[in-house]
Design a protein around this nucleic acid. Structure first.
Lengths: 247, 247
DNA sequence: ATATAGATCTCGTCA
DNA sequence: TGACGAGGTCTATAT
C-alpha cells in the first residue's frame, strides 16, 4: 500500500488513504488530532483534507500547492505523510499507525458550480422590482463597486433623497446595520450631501431585535424582503428501509 | 457496484463513490454542478460531501441527518442518489452517469481536534500578562459571558476607569471596532457609567488603516499584541522527486 | 499583496 | 430554539 501512495504522489493523482492515524498541524495555529480511523484525501491540486466519519467539514486541511512526501517516523518507524506549504509556512504531519485502504484516481472535472438565489440575485430582483422597497424608489445603480463602496443598490425617491439599500439573504444582524451606516457616511462625504438626505434601507427576510433597535437608532429602515422561494418541500416519508425497498 | 452502494446505505457505513455525475441542490439556495468526475462521500452521520479533484472545500454538501436513497432516473434510467434533509428542507440529487469506483467503511473515530493558539488562548495570555495592555491595567474578568456581553477581558486602570479589551488573533478590521464599540455601550448602560469612563482597547497583531481611523474616531486604543509564535519555518527544499527519493 | 464582504458559511455555546 | 461570535474560516473581487 505504501507503493501505491508513493506512486500516486509522484504521478500527481488524487489519493485517498483510509487509516488509523494521528495528525499534527502547525501554521496559523497548532492542532493535534489524536489517533482515530479516518480518511486522508490528497487532491490533484495538492490540497489536503482530513475527513472524520462524522461532521460536515474536513477536520484538518492544507491549501492547494502543498508539497507531500512519504517518510518514516524516526523513533516509531511508522510511515508518515509530511505535508508542507512553503509560502503559507504551514505544515501537517500524518502518522499512519495502520493503513486500512489506499485508492488513487486521476479525475477530470473542470465543472464549476452555479448558484441561484445568492445575495447578488436578490439585488437584481429588487432592482427589477423597486416597489419592494418603497412605491417611489427609483434605483439607478447596482453593486457597481463605486468609490462609495460596495453598495448593493443605490437610487433615489421622489423628494431628491438618495436611497442606499443593503441586502441580506439571511437574517440581518448588527454588522449589517454597521455596513449600511458606513455606506451612508461615505456617500454623504463623497457627494457633499447631509446624511439626512440619504435614506438607508436594510432589505432582508428577518432581523434580530438587537439589530432592529440599532437600526432605528441610526434612523434607517428595515424592509422585509423574502429571499428567493424555496422549492423544496420534503414530505414525510417512511424510514430508510422503505426507501431502499422502492429503489 | 449498485449492490455495494445499497448495502452501505442500509448498514450506515461511510460510502465513497467515484463517479461521473451531475448534481442538483435545492434548499437554502439552488445549485447545479454540471457533469464531471468527482467523489461523493456519504459519512456515517449521513452528512454528504461532493468533492472535486481540486479545491480545499467540498463543492456541494448536505448536513448530518440526511436520508439517502438510491433510485433510478425516470427518463434516462440512470442511477440517482436522492439525499433529503427533512428538518432543514433541503435536498440533493446526484445523477450517476458512470460509476468509476465504490468503497465503503465503518470507521471508529471519536477523537476531537485540539487547537492551540486560538483567540481564547490569547485572552488567557493577556490576562496573565496585563502589562501587554498598559502598565496600570488590572483585569478582573475574562470571557465570562456576563450580562455585559461576550467581553474578552474586563478590568480597570489606576484612575477608576473601566477597560474593555477585545482580542483578535489575526489582523483586526473595522468589524472588530464595531464589536468593541458595542461592548463599551452595553457596559456603560448596564453600569450607568458615562462612556468616557470606559477605555476600549483592541488587542491584535495588526490592523487595517481604515479600521485604525475608525478606532481613533471612536476614541479607542489599538494595542499591538503578537499572537502565539509560529513554530513552522519550512525551509526551501528540492522538488517532489527528490523528497520521494529520500523516503 | 491588501482590503472588503458573501457564504447553502460551519461550529460551539449559552440563554 | 434562537442569538451571537470565532474560525487555521474559505472564496471571490477590487484596488
Amino acid at each position: 500500500m505504501l507503493g501505491e501512495i508513493r506512486d500516486a504522489l509522484t504521478r500527481g493523482r488524487l489519493l485517498l488513504i483510509t487509516a488509523r492515524c494521528t495528525i499534527h498541524y502547525e501554521g496559523r495555529i497548532s492542532s493535534i488530532l489524536p489517533e482515530g480511523e479516518r480518511i486522508i484525501l490528497i487532491k490533484q491540486d495538492r490540497s489536503v483534507n482530513i475527513i472524520q466519519p462524522q461532521g460536515v467539514l474536513p477536520v484538518n486541511y492544507m491549501k492547494e500547492g502543498s508539497r507531500v512526501s512519504l517518510e518514516e517516523d524516526e523513533t516509531s518507524h511508522e510511515p508518515v505523510l509530511l505535508i508542507e506549504h512553503e509560502r503559507l509556512r504551514e505544515q501537517m504531519r500524518v502518522i499512519l499507525h495502520r493503513i486500512l485502504d489506499v485508492k488513487s484516481y486521476t479525475l477530470h472535472d473542470p465543472a464549476r458550480i452555479e448558484l441561484l438565489g445568492t445575495e447578488k440575485d436578490m439585488h437584481e430582483y429588487i432592482y427589477q422590482h423597486p416597489e419592494l422597497i418603497s412605491p417611489d424608489f427609483k434605483p439607478f445603480s447596482r453593486e457597481e463597486q463605486t468609490k462609495y463602496g460596495y453598495i448593493d443598490i443605490l437610487g433615489h425617491d421622489g423628494q431628491g433623497n438618495l436611497i442606499v439599500v443593503e441586502c441580506k439573504r439571511g437574517q440581518a444582524d448588527y454588522t449589517a446595520v454597521v455596513q449600511l451606516e458606513r455606506y451612508v457616511k461615505r456617500l454623504a462625504e463623497e457627494r457633499g450631501v447631509s446624511e439626512e438626505k440619504i435614506r438607508g434601507v436594510l432589505a432582508a427576510p428577518s432581523m434580530s431585535e438587537d439589530a432592529k433597535a440599532y437600526l432605528r437608532e441610526k434612523g434607517f429602515i428595515f424592509k422585509r424582503v423574502q429571499p428567493p422561494e424555496r422549492r423544496v418541500r420534503v414530505k414525510r416519508q417512511k424510514g430508510l428501509d422503505a426507501w431502499l425497498g422502492r429503489a
